[in-house]
Simulated assay, not measured.
Amino acid sequence: MSQEIIVKAEPRSTSGSTAARRLRRAGAVPAVLSTLGGESTLLQLNAHDFERTVSQHVSAQLLVTLDVGGKSCMALLREIQRDGITGRITHADFSQIDTARKMRVQIPLILVGEPEGVRTQNGVLEQHLRQIDVACLPSDVVESFTVDVTNLKLGDDITVADLQLGEKFAIHTRPETVVATVAEVKEEVVAAAAVTADAAAAPAQPELSVKKGKAEEDAAAAAAPAAKAKGK
């Protein structure tokens, strides 16, 4: 584990949606801690401090030291829920961790380097897998894994089986899962875009000519009866 992340919490005695809304209005985030004994402990967090802590890390699942009223325990931040409009955190779920036992976590994969297929072959890098499921001891949890894609040529890919994470990590994601690939830019898409651009840039003169001709015909038709009457 790279550094200790401390999250301060306070016990709460109220539950339910009404109580949760009241907490949020007061600047708190309702949370739940699942203990090793299978019990659920109701907590509340300072919304500003917790948001700042989460925003400083790549992974959504964080191993933290949870300080509840002065008593600490190791816990995994399993899930956070956010408001669909404001993006603010509305709820957090923690699970207490046994530091002597391996645990399953989702760790982000960060691609590094510019692929040869992008640099010299006009390809495009596509990332298909953004986090990997591994088991490890709590002390070995890392913020993310980096994947070097520098040597990927056009049509090449990297699968989970190609990753070298070390003996500390047991990978549970299927080995054939594609992590990243360098794909060819499809010519049909480029051609279609060019046709659309040409059509948008083309002058609308023919349509104006038709409208002008129609106007002249209408004027001539209106003038014909007057000319006939004058002739009589």
Rank of each mutant, 00 (worst) to 15 (best):
A19L: 00
A19Q: 02
T35D: 05
E114Y: 02
L23F: 11
E79N: 13
Q81V: 11
N46Q: 12
N46I: 12
K71R: 13
L76G: 11
H48L: 15
M74W: 10
R82L: 03
L137A: 08
D133E: 15
K153F: 10
D83R: 00
Q61S: 04
I107W: 01
A135G: 13
V54A: 01
V29E: 02
L23Q: 09
T18L: 14
R130G: 09
A19S: 10
R78Y: 08
D148E: 09
V142W: 06
V32N: 08
L109A: 09
T35P: 04
R21L: 10
V54R: 02
A92P: 12
C136Q: 07
V105Y: 07
Q96G: 04
N122C: 03
R88C: 04
F145V: 08
L76I: 08
Q106I: 07
H128D: 04
V105P: 08
F145C: 04
D133Y: 06
F50R: 02
G69N: 15
R88L: 13
G37E: 15
R104A: 11
K102Q: 15
D93C: 05
A47T: 03
H57C: 05
C136R: 00
V29W: 02
A19I: 01
S34E: 12
G27D: 04
Q61H: 09
G123T: 02
G117N: 05
H57Y: 11
I110W: 10
D49H: 11
D156V: 10
A28E: 12
P115R: 08
E79Q: 14
C73E: 08
T35K: 07
L154R: 04
V68C: 05
A20H: 09
